[in-house]
Design a protein around this nucleic acid. Structure first.
Length: 529
RNA sequence: GCGCCCGUAGCUCAGGGGAUAGAGCGAGAGACUUCUAAUCUCGAGGCCGCAGGUUCGAAUCCUGCCGGGCGCACCA
């Protein structure tokens, strides 16, 4: 990570190391809530006190002298129990802005780490119906995490696992056929309108065998799913078929691999995987007494395939109703001889619409397509990752549809459009600038904006590390607020060329920053609104 | 019973050990002759579920309890 703040951080670490002779406690640079406490503050002196057996104020006084000579630091004061409050000089702000502009879209980005191949498997909804709003959360969250990981230096592959084997797709095939022939839909079948659409579209004779109805019906359903995901800017690199795992012998091979590892046993006529060896609360059946493979058998083969294909890290994005799989998946990987640390499950909590949980059997399903149609792709993606994935999410559809003009996504997009508008006007009036100038003394709103912009590398790094795209949303909203305040207080296209150059530079940096941040959550940044 | 997530303003939620806990929505009062008012400014509104513990310092970490959501298949 690099950037104006990490440079400041590094300089403080160096000063502390000089003082202690090498040892440096975890050192955080904070932005004090109270402006009287400076631009940045650190509590390092308090953390150092027990290590050095000295009083924190004493340490702080000594460190203050060392920090005062760091380039860009205007003043240092010791406050409270031993806080070191730093105030940054005008030159720091000019340098920070200039560095950010020079970095452009690389600002905060990290180069690809060699040898890292991250696989993110997400959505993977059964191809028996249109994607629901729950899958929409999965898609928005999973794709945003993938984008974050790419931005912070991982090579990412996005994969969708198609559950096209077993009873459910069999029932789906029967439902398609029943629709076509105008018959009753089988017990537990799929009554959705999309099934009828597929039935009408299928090029099949009425008496075609069931497996054809299944295969062709699933193919069309998968295409519908792919299209709906693409419409919300989610694209997969790989679509892996469960049926294919059976056909290629991958399932049998995975079981054999586990057998070689000594994790297979027979009991009650079934073949079991001893996942309890690795912390699962019960062993799992792979081959049932009736000779059929379980769903978990394909899961096991799929884990095997992921690592055999060269993934170094396999991420699963699952809804809270699947959290019981975590231990099973990790134990399964371990039974195959893989490191469970390389299997990561990301659980997002369930989504409700206007307070009600969705369910196919509840008959109140809202589809992904309906959501994006109702509030637009930008608002949908913004809404879906606005809150922590650990938090159940309620979408108030009435509000989202009816009051979309006060939707927070517009607040952020409007800041971007304002920047673009100012830049357009500058170009039209021949006020284009080259560089940030040298003489302008930044004012309060300008400083606040630049401090915010400078946080980006740390924000994006922690969002990626925590798999928390909602942090991007929070930060972007704060950035937009800082910009709107700046815009309100200060006139950008000022007659003074120095002032104009500086402010136009800040506007340009802001526009780039908003676009960059929104791109990581798949939201567009319009130039006009 | 066991496991995962949550409990912060009227509502929906941010706050990965720091100083006086924040935002949006809602309710209140103001600001457009200037780069888009989809904006800005100001005020109101809080036993951060409860009780212990760790720490110089806890909304944040640990333990217990209470409340809510979701799971615990030879289903997929």
């Amino acid at each position: 990570m690099s950037g104006p703040i990490s440079e400041l951080h590094a300089a403080i670490v160096a000063a502390v190391a000089t003082m202690t002779g090498g040892e440096v406690p975890e050192l955080a640079l904070e932005r004090p809530a109270n402006a009287e406490h400076g631009d940045y503050a650190t509590s390092v002196a308090m953390r150092l006190a027990p290590l050095l057996s000295r009083k924190p104020r004493e340490i702080a006084d000594e460190l203050a002298l060392a920090l005062a000579v760091i380039p860009g630091v205007e003043s240092v004061e010791v406050a409270g129990p031993g806080f070191l409050n730093l105030r940054l000089g005008d030159q720091w702000y000019r340098d920070a802005l200039s560095d950010m502009l020079a970095a452009g879209d690389e600002f905060g980005r990290q180069p690809f780490a060699p040898g890292v191949e991250t696989l993110v498997e997400f959505v993977s909804s059964n191809p028996t119906g249109d994607l629901t709003i729950g899958s929409a959360r999965n898609a928005a969250y999973g794709d945003s995490v993938a984008r974050l990981l790419e931005f912070t230096g991982e090579k990412v592959t996005r994969e969708y696992y198609i559950n096209d084997a077993g009873n459910q797709v069999g029932l789906f095939g029967q439902s398609v056929q029943a629709r076509r022939l105008g018959r009753e839909i089988p017990e537990g079948g799929y009554p959705g309108d999309e099934v009828a659409l597929i039935a009408a579209e299928l090029d099949l004779a009425d008496d075609a065998p069931l497996e054809d109805w299944v295969a062709k019906g699933v193919a069309l359903m998968v295409e519908r799913i792919r299209a709906s995901l693409a419409s919300m800017r989610v694209e997969f690199d790989l679509w892996t078929s469960e049926k294919g795992l059976h056909e290629t012998g991958a399932v049998v091979a995975a079981i054999e691999r586990a057998r070689v590892q000594g994790r297979i046993f027979e009991q009650d006529g079934a073949t079991w995987l001893r996942t309890t060896d690795f912390g699962d609360d019960k062993d799992r059946v792979l081959l049932k007494a009736d000779g059929e493979h379980t769903y978990f058998a394909s899961d096991l083969a799929y884990i095997d395939l992921k690592f055999q294909r060269g993934a170094t890290h396999a991420i699963y994005v699952l809804g809270a109703d699947h959290h019981g799989y975590i231990q099973r998946l990790k134990a399964g990987a371990q039974c195959l001889g893989y490191d469970p640390e390389h299997v990561e499950t990301l659980i997002y909590q369930l989504i409700t619409v206007s307070g009600e949980r969705m369910g196919k059997r509840r008959g109140n399903v809202i589809t992904l397509a309906e959501l994006t149609e109702a509030i637009g792709v930008d608002a949908a993606r913004y809404f879906l990752v606005q809150r922590s994935h650990d938090q159940t999410l309620d979408i108030d559809l009435d509000l989202a549809v009816e009051a979309s003009s006060k939707n927070p996504v517009y607040y952020v997009q409007y800041a971007h459009a304002r920047c673009a508008s100012i830049e357009r006007k500058a170009a039209d009036e021949g006020l284009a600038i080259d560089g940030i100038g040298s003489g302008h003394v930044p004012e309060g709103p300008e400083k606040a904006l630049i401090r915010r912009l400078a946080e980006w590398p740390e924000v994006v790094a922690s969002a990626a590390e925590l798999r928390a795209p909602h942090r991007i949303v929070s930060w972007t909203h704060e950035l937009a607020a800082d910009f709107h305040a700046f815009h309100h207080d200060l006139y950008v296209l000022h007659e003074d060329a120095e002032i104009r150059a500086f402010r136009l530079s800040a506007v340009h940096a802001t526009r780039e920053a908003i676009a960059r941040a929104l791109a990581l959550i798949g939201v567009g940044a319009p130039d006009r609104m």
